[in-house]
Design a protein around this nucleic acid. Structure first.
Lengths: 359, 359
DNA sequence: CATCGCCGCTAAACCGCTTTACTAAAGCGG
DNA sequence: CCGCTTTAGTAAAGCGGTTTAGCGGCGATG
């Protein structure tokens, strides 16, 4: 049993291949009688054009690729990607595009890129000096960068990571915390600090420097609850125990809270925790997680919109970074040996909190 | 600027197209000197084979399709799909496959199927009389069904939905609840009750019939927190207010709990809630959600494994359904006007609780 | 009545790669 | 030096569509 091709239909209907092709793509070029006969025959035979053949001939595949820096198993443990896909999905639905997930092919993103039959790529978390980016250029394939650094060569969608991080750190400082720790996003094969992580770190540091607080302890943790729990174990104990932790992902923050709780420490009484992302789950933990909100769905939507414009030949440039905002919930309070002390500089980024709550 | 093709490389290296092709796919058929020269030239030119052309010629694309019954926006709001993809991802990683998300193309799954250049499909939640299934057959493309009914024509991966549901209902009954409500999974365009929903409902009913409890009120709700909150509003108030709710998805259950809480009702004191799926978030709500666990990641893994075997030409048949188990957490207790009354039939499905905790 | 334009359809080229013959040259034993 | 097997490489035929250029016939036009 072999696939029904356009030639089969042509023979069965007593016309040329061209006529069959026209029947589907250019019906007005055929007489009514022929048109109907061809469609009828095609349907009877169960003909369906071969997608690869079509893509080859048309030089477009109707698919956009989502370039993922890690393995599927890892990356889907974090709701971040789900939300991004939701945003992209709106545009895909509207434009009849499907979406190809492109994780590294045995370790190499570049070889994965080559395999992928897509009309454009949205890459997440790629650093600008990554070889994959050069490969993309060389192929001349439209590309939009999400969570990279700004680039002159490509449209890039970003949020204001640094301001968000600064707001988070300022929040802890205003509550009176001085003994802090930072949980970093994990390094990748090619980079110790992803672009996003670097910007967030810069934001934390800006606030800490301003307050004259020394560089805190830093620990890397993947964006999973398990990794967060592990990070908790790695925190200094005893005298230099931090009273507040700045975590670069909600998932790790939640795992860290869990580990703290099961060690008998209470959040926020013994330990304040601030996350990053504001994934849906963050509002539902005990206590609810104070975190920096970034509009992930909007990010996906915007990236897809830009990519589609680019695929249509329009030249687009990077939009300004989307806003982030601190969402204060229950996982932060003043350190217990300190009383309330909600001091000084009231007019801070804190004011932005809760502004960006649409979505 | 046009794409570099195999012919360009051939000319530049002073050899035939065949030689270039051999250099990549059949290096041992070339002399060492030629081989090296060709590869060098190819690399200099930035040559990369055109994926569609390759797929056409090879009759395989290195991609498997995930057939999704709803729009991307909707379906990724539920962590279910993320977990399924995690499982599938393991196998994709091992076998160098990428994954294409195939949602309905302006409403029609069938036309989406035709567009998709894939070597096989994993479909989720398709009912056996769906036209899409016939399309798949006709194309003769390997297919594995997830969350459908059992079929003789296709391999199908399922969990024991009914037993899980029965355990959930039995749990509420044993706690003393008699006034119940059921929150159904939402209908799709083509079916009022998805196969999964039908099996779960059968499970609930089995338990209720056994206990002689009359058919409870039923309400449909999508697998989102918003839909769950809406469902709460639709519950009967006053005298016939249910004391326990059986919800077919965790997301809806969580939304329902939230709505109850903000109406001033306390879970589980005023209302017991049992979910379904045991998504990661379920353990972290307040109170933690009692729910039926199904091994979603394992489901994805198994489906992908079967599909890959099928793509390799092996004939496979459906494995037995995977086990479900009740996970009792904090969202269920005896109805308050009733005392403890943990009555009668102790030896129930309840015993299975917590058994399937790997993953 | 010759001409023009249009309608309806087809032949053939093309998209870019793989693979099956097939050939020319080289190696080799006798 | 001859016939035979290897070796190294090539020409051409697919894979299954789309599309350009063109062709015969026919009604309208001048």
């Amino acid at each position: 049993m072999t696939r029904v091709t356009i030639a089969d239909v042509a023979i069965a209907a007593g016309v040329s291949k061209t006529a069959v092709s026209f029947a589907f793509n250019n019906p007005e070029r055929l007489g009514l009688a022929t048109l109907e006969r061809v469609l009828q025959v095609a349907n009877d035979l169960g003909y369906t054009p071969h997608p690869a053949a079509r893509a080859l001939s048309l030089r477009r595949s109707g698919t956009i690729g989502l370039l993922i820096p890690q393995r599927l198993t890892t990356v889907f443990a974090n709701p971040f990607l789900s939300e991004l896909i939701q945003g992209m999905g709106e545009l895909c639905d509207e434009n009849d595009l499907t979406m190809l997930l492109v994780p590294p092919l045995d370790g190499s993103l570049e070889s994965a890129i080559r395999q992928a039959s897509v009309d454009g790529f949205i890459s997440v978390g790629l650093s600008l000096d990554d070889g994959a980016l050069e490969t993309l250029d060389r192929l001349g394939i439209p590309t939009v960068l999400v969570d990279s650094d700004v680039s002159t060569r490509h449209a890039a969608v970003n949020v204001d990571d640094a301001r968000g991080a600064e707001a988070a750190a300022t929040h802890l400082l205003e509550l009176g915390h001085r003994e802090l720790a930072i949980i970093l996003l994990p390094p990748t094969r090619s980079q110790a600090l992803t672009p996003t992580a670097a910007r967030r770190l810069a934001g934390y540091r800006a606030a800490l420097n301003m307050a004259g607080v020394p560089e805190p302890r830093m620990i890397s943790a993947g964006a999973t609850m398990a990794a967060g729990a592990l990070a908790y174990e790695a925190l200094p104990k005893g005298k230099r125990r931090p009273t507040g932790v700045l975590v670069m992902s909600d998932m790790a923050a939640i795992g860290l809270m869990a580990a703290a709780a099961s060690s008998g420490f209470s959040v926020p009484k013994d330990l304040s925790v601030v996350g990053y992302d504001d994934i849906p789950m963050a509002a539902w933990t005990t206590p609810p997680l104070t975190t920096v909100r970034q509009p992930i769905v909007e990010k996906g939507r915007l990236a897809a919109r830009l990519l589609i414009q680019q695929m249509q030949g329009r030249k687009v440039d990077s939009p300004p970074p989307l806003e982030t905002s601190l969402v204060v919930r229950g996982s932060t309070s003043s350190p217990k040996d300190m009383g309330v002390r909600r001091a000084g500089h009231t007019k801070s980024n804190l004011a932005k909190s809760g502004e960006d709550q649409r979505e």
